[in-house]
Design a protein around this nucleic acid. Sequence first.
DNA 1: CGCGTTTACGCCTCACGTAAACATC
DNA 2: GATGTTTACGTGAGGCGTAAACGCG
Lengths: 300, 300
Amino acid sequence: MTLKQLEAFYWAATCINFAVAAERVHVSSSSLSKRIAELEHSLGLELFDKTGRNSVLTGHGDRLLPLAKDMLERAGAIRETLGSSIGLSGRCRLGMGEMSAMCWLPAFIAAVAARHPGLQVEPLVANDQVLERRLEDGELDCAVLAGASSRGGLASQAVGEAELAWVASPEFVTRCGTDRPAELVNGQLFISLPAGSGLTRALDQWAGQHGLSVERRLSCNNWGAVVSMIRAGLGFGLMPREWAHAMARRGALLVLQPEERLPSLGYVLQWRRDDSRALIAEMRRLVGRSVAFRAPECFI
Amino acid sequence: MTLKQLEAFYWAATCINFAVAAERVHVSSSSLSKRIAELEHSLGLELFDKTGRNSVLTGHGDRLLPLAKDMLERAGAIRETLGSSIGLSGRCRLGMGEMSAMCWLPAFIAAVAARHPGLQVEPLVANDQVLERRLEDGELDCAVLAGASSRGGLASQAVGEAELAWVASPEFVTRCGTDRPAELVNGQLFISLPAGSGLTRALDQWAGQHGLSVERRLSCNNWGAVVSMIRAGLGFGLMPREWAHAMARRGALLVLQPEERLPSLGYVLQWRRDDSRALIAEMRRLVGRSVAFRAPECFI
DNA sequence: CGCGTTTACGCCTCACGTAAACATC
DNA sequence: GATGTTTACGTGAGGCGTAAACGCG
């Protein structure tokens, strides 16, 4: 029995399948399979029931799981307590929404690279539902999402707040004759992300507070497209404050005045609650001191 | 960092030197040295101060020691809890006194062999002081001694009681005109093991209770020699009861009548208190159900 | 047939033991 | 010189990935 075997077993037992677990321990699924077979041989019992498409834990496997987790945590604690502070290595699969990818990811990548030159961050941009599922499945190590997860298996920690601002193109405002969002929502097209996104939730919350309803909507799952449509004068919308002001400074957009009070978007880092790797602790540390959300360079 | 490395580190830290630790983990001292060097490299710190003839733990090593012990205990617990009940393997260095070696060892070896065919018991016969030191140094896995140790680092568990009987050769009794030990101690030669042995302690306890002193003594560190001398009529002595009666049955010795009440010798299994290997647990189990002290075959 | 896992196989690293060298007392 | 540890080095086992095969839906 080796730590590698226990690690392989643990992730195989808690990830969606062996292939995902293999990625997490940075080996081929063939090797992972063999590590588990070796562990089973050394303990003299079956840990997985492999009849069927997906391997499922046996009773013995169930009993081993908390023990293996404990071993791995303690091994991690030793490395953390005593190990020299050489940087992490390997890969970190980091999920996030598109806005985080544009406003926050570059600075974060820089911070990670400065502290851990050997760690390769692999960002995956997807919507919140996909991100949460991939987190649970083990395909992502952690993810930045708008708001804490509803899933019990995922833990979270605040990353920062993105304040929102109403925006529209100068031509659009001229055409409408008003820059008051409370008036625009009656009749004008509100362009934003699909239902379920943090942005849409923030809008609905705002509308509820003001007794308004947003009738005409256009949703697109791509921020660049949303911004382009707003800029083209197809409608009005919401954007992170810094982003909006950056575009306003070069005349591309107008920040609608007066800015209505909007709930800010609380972004959190999420990870699997049962994931006790040093990688996670370090990501939490780094996002805790990360820079604020910024306007994406490409739109300034 | 691997379990093997932690195991090597633990025993290197708690045995008298690397060579002894290497025997305990069944590798050459070269390999043990390299395992420790590997561990040091993987943690990025020095665990032993190797300037000097004996390696001594550094501060980092001190901190790692309890963590490593914990890891090994948990690994052992996994094997014990889940592992199939295949027998132990490897070697068990078992120390004991000469009497235990003759009266008790054969039956114990048989019991071990029946339960653990792959385990090789290596008995070492020596006196109690030597046994205790070797236990502490790590050269012995466990030992059967007369009475619990005075050393705090050693734990113990009762194995059995050896009842004693007075013996002398028929010719000796005839020559002395008495078979009462309380009379024989005045003037006759008492033949026994060296001071410090359980047998001598039992005699002194008996003498103290009866207000007697044993003046003439002959000590030899070899039971066979002691028995031979008693049988040759050089003096009288004490022997385990079964042993004495076995020799009396064939007329070789007389069991002196009436048998004075003597404290029996309480034999215990001793092991290092910090030794949490499954080997020790199994030895404790086996001696707990082991056969009683018997007359050694060679003297029946 | 698609998906998930294991087997086959060639490769190569790494851990081992023997033996010599080194360091300390 | 005796003792304790490390280095040198040749050997062998075992872990690795690629790719093919297997087994279940």
